[in-house]
Design a protein around this nucleic acid. Structure first.
Lengths: 182, 182, 182, 182
DNA sequence: AATGAATGAGGATTCATTCAT
DNA sequence: CATGAATGAATCCTCATTCAT
């Protein structure tokens, strides 16, 4: 009576829809219902494919963090020498986030989850480790760690600030952090 | 029928309870019911005193951000010279957050709200401006801005990382950022 | 501390606001709060001046029905002879209700209350009696009664119908009802 | 945990219960809760089966109006000639409403909704069209229209009036309206 | 394997009313 | 005399989850 489609990509579609919904209304506003509607799957599919919201969020943010880390790695790998690497870092800080405000919002949602739940902290931890590894292609470990923090801090302030930001500040930051202290 | 006591501090108690509940279960898990229970007030009081959840959150996080900004300002004001100021900054990065994990969680919740809602971005904006003003007691504007970002980034990474962090990294970060570039 | 204004018209203003609110959102949607807001009086005034919603509605609809009845009476009194009276009746049926859709809505709200509550039936009863009395200035009692029913039925159908109505039908109705049966 | 019986007639039962509740306490007093209780279904069923109160009322009054129209049609179809038809019309006016005061109350509730909401006006419009169609089995279109209005007006006055009504008035009304004007 | 139907718990909010002032 | 503050009950609605199919 009812059509029976195997639909192997369904799980993936749900995960993607989850990120979309969270980006729009936040973890606070996301529900099985809204995500099911966004994914175009019946409500019953949600609890069939996922134990609960938490598992779904874990999977969704795992995918998000992996994609973000991979993008950064690729960017660093493209730099031929230290100077190019420094320029690349400054650009990461200055440039619009790759996915627009969506990525910013999702990043914060993930951090908020990670601040409370160790399972999500594993995700942020892996993400940060990947970032540092990518930076260590060009910088010593301490400098890599500091650069990573500077990227995080400046990008965040840029996003949460109302006033426009000066690209020169990013360049100055990279210069100072990578300079041998006198 | 029921006892009716005028209770002038009630609004404040609700705001405080709101922060407590958000710290524990997040904005996503906070509800009028839970907050009312935490504040020991009847459910009807919630929408009597506040138009809705958003207004309550605004007020709660306004109070939180103001307190955090004031704490930092006081700390910076206590430094007598640049060297003391640098030490203070390194301590802020390294030290356990003043309110324990609670402050960290609340900060992230606020950032998440701010990433989506301009009303909350006003709060973060004011907070950041206050931080920079405090740093400018001892450092030039550019350095102050960079230090602020470094504090943010390192504190955040420290919190979201699983591995222990080396206090020396904080000191190195401050040294490099405050050094005259060669 | 608080200003103390005698404000003798306040009761009346509340009654008027009650009709306004009922016209807009219906008895079902009217509440002490909305009416108080519409009247520009504090919520506490409502239960101070009126025992409850029912008393307020009684008073409001009493005023409404009295005004409607008086309007009709005046109209009939203006007719000099039977022919003018017949024309006036046809006009009442055909013309837009005097207060626009507002009067129509309020009339139905009143009828609905009257259908269930004898206290409101007293109001409709008095209104109908007044109408018949006005008609009896020009017509015999039976004809007056029939005319009154025809006015009611046609006006109602005109209002609840989607299709436009032919003014000729009103004239025909009046002619037939007032004609001596053969 | 709880027993879960598929119950195909449930939607219908809710609609019926809705009419019962509205007949008793009015649209103003009807709520999901009371209707659910009357239908013997859990509260959650209400919004599962119906988008909101409006949709439920639409369906309920659609059923009511259809039944009323059908009853009238059947009555008119039973008349063999014009004289029988006239007698039938007079009886409709004079007789107790078929469902007792319940039908009267529901009719007014529907009219009140229709006076404000076009969606319900569609219902009354269809009902009136059906009535006229039924009358046109025996009368010319204009006469049918006038008769319909007279039925409405007299039935309404009879119901909203406190004084007893003379069956002769109904007969007179029908005679006059159906008489060729001289 | 997959889902539509179903539901109790809880969501925010509005309500009429009361009482202290 | 009049009202602002306060509240428990009730409002509609959404929720995650379960179960029969």
């Amino acid at each position: 009576m009812t059509v029976r489609r195997p639909d192997p990509g369904r799980r993936d579609r749900i995960v993607d829809a989850c990120l979309d919904v969270v980006a729009e209304v936040g973890v606070a506003g996301a529900s099985h219902r809204t995500i099911a509607a966004a994914a175009g799957v019946p409500l019953g599919s949600m609890t069939y494919h996922f134990t609960g919201m938490r598992e779904l969020l874990r999977e969704a943010f795992g995918r998000f963090a992996a994609a973000a880390a991979e993008g950064f790695e690729r960017r660093m790998a493209a730099a031929r020498d230290v100077e190019e690497a420094k320029r690349a870092v400054a650009e990461v800080i200055t440039a619009e986030p790759p996915g627009g405000p969506r990525d910013l919002v999702l990043t914060h949602e993930l951090y908020t989850l990670a601040a409370r739940d160790p399972a999500f902290r594993d995700l942020t931890n892996a993400w940060m480790a990947a970032s540092r590894r990518a930076l260590e292609r060009h910088f010593d470990p301490l400098t890599a760690r500091l650069l990573d923090a500077v990227i995080e801090g400046m990008a965040m302030h840029r996003a949460l600030d109302v006033e426009p930001h000066d690209p020169a500040a990013a360049i100055a930051a990279v210069e100072r952090v990578t300079a041998r202290s006198v």
